[in-house]
């Protein structure tokens, strides 16, 4: 029969993170120290146990973090968290081939996001040339980042997982927020409204940088650990079929970013 301390730890692990942080702000600070950015999350319904599992910290680091959390939540009890048994020791992410393909696409999107401040400096929304450059950037976002890359995630990869998973819902919410920023940029260009274009394009860049970091470092490694070999092979074949369908268009979009960086 589980003892009082085990029950306390069990209760702690099964609580949604937002409630824990609201009640014990120190929990957010401890998570932050271990690179777990739940404080900024807009949803916050993930259970602490799922967050710990997904981040796959080194065993000793995880044990120390959990002990610190237990001391904050249960200061009256001397709780020592044991090392969690796990199948594979954590290591730097090594992606399966289909997931690696998505990470390579992220690199192009990150390169574009890094160029956005320079593009805003150069592109005058009052001129035809400036508007053309801004709309070319929007075309990259819509054709490459959204239609080509996000479609692979939303229509293929995420379908292998429960759509009610909080981590998936957060990523989909990011995609929706990015699309809203892009719509606002286009409206700003049409109205020759430089302030709106600047505000939403910079917000898009910030959002995408954070979103890609979450996917590359947390979501994708976790998904790779869940996927069976059969699913990895299927994903690879489905991505390859989609690449064939898109033909040379993605390569053309990548060259747009490459040329822009070289200017």
């Amino acid at each position: 029969m589980a003892g009082e301390k085990e029950i306390a730890v069990g209760n702690m692990l099964n609580r949604p993170i937002k409630g824990l942080i609201d009640e014990y702000p120190q929990v957010g600070r401890i998570l932050d120290e271990y690179g777990i950015g739940c404080v900024a999350c807009s949803v916050g319904t993930c259970l602490l146990k799922d967050i710990v599992g997904i981040h796959n910290l080194a065993p000793e680091a995880e044990q120390k973090m959990m002990t610190l959390l237990a001391q904050v939540i249960h200061p009256d009890r001397d709780i020592r968290i044991p090392l969690r048994e796990r199948k594979n020791a954590p290591a730097a992410p090594t992606y399966s081939p289909p997931i690696r393909k998505l990470v390579e696409e992220h690199n192009w999107i990150k390169r574009w996001a890094a160029l956005i401040p320079a593009v805003l400096e150069r592109a005058d929304v009052a001129t035809d040339e400036g508007r053309a450059l801004l709309l070319a950037g929007v075309d990259f976002i819509r054709s490459y980042a959204d239609k080509y890359h996000h479609a692979k995630e939303e229509d293929i990869l995420f379908k292998y997982f429960d759509s009610d998973l909080d981590v998936v819902r957060v990523m989909l919410a990011d995609h929706a927020a990015a699309r809203a920023h892009v719509r606002a940029v286009v409206e700003g260009v049409e109205r020759r409204d430089a302030a709106t274009v600047r505000e939403h394009l910079l917000a898009y860049a910030d959002l995408l940088k954070e979103h890609i970091e979450k996917e590359d470092e947390i979501l994708y490694p976790w998904m790779d650990r869940q996927l069976s070999d059969r699913q990895v092979g299927e994903l690879y074949a489905r991505f390859a079929a989609l690449d064939e369908e898109f033909g040379e268009t993605p390569r053309r979009q990548e060259r747009f970013v490459q040329d822009l960086a070289a200017r």
């Binding site: 594979n88 090594t94 992606y95 399966s96 081939p97 289909p98 690696r100 070999d229 990895v232 092979g233 690879y236 074949a237 390859a240």
Partner: peptide
């Protein structure tokens, strides 16, 4: 035709030393 290839390396004690996907 390319497919994902994984390499699993087994220690002389029977434990798994490394398991990773190679580049397809």
């Amino acid at each position: 035709r390319k497919v994902p290839v994984k390499e699993i390396i087994v220690g002389l004690d029977g434990d798994i030393r490394q398991e990773e996907w190679l580049k397809a």
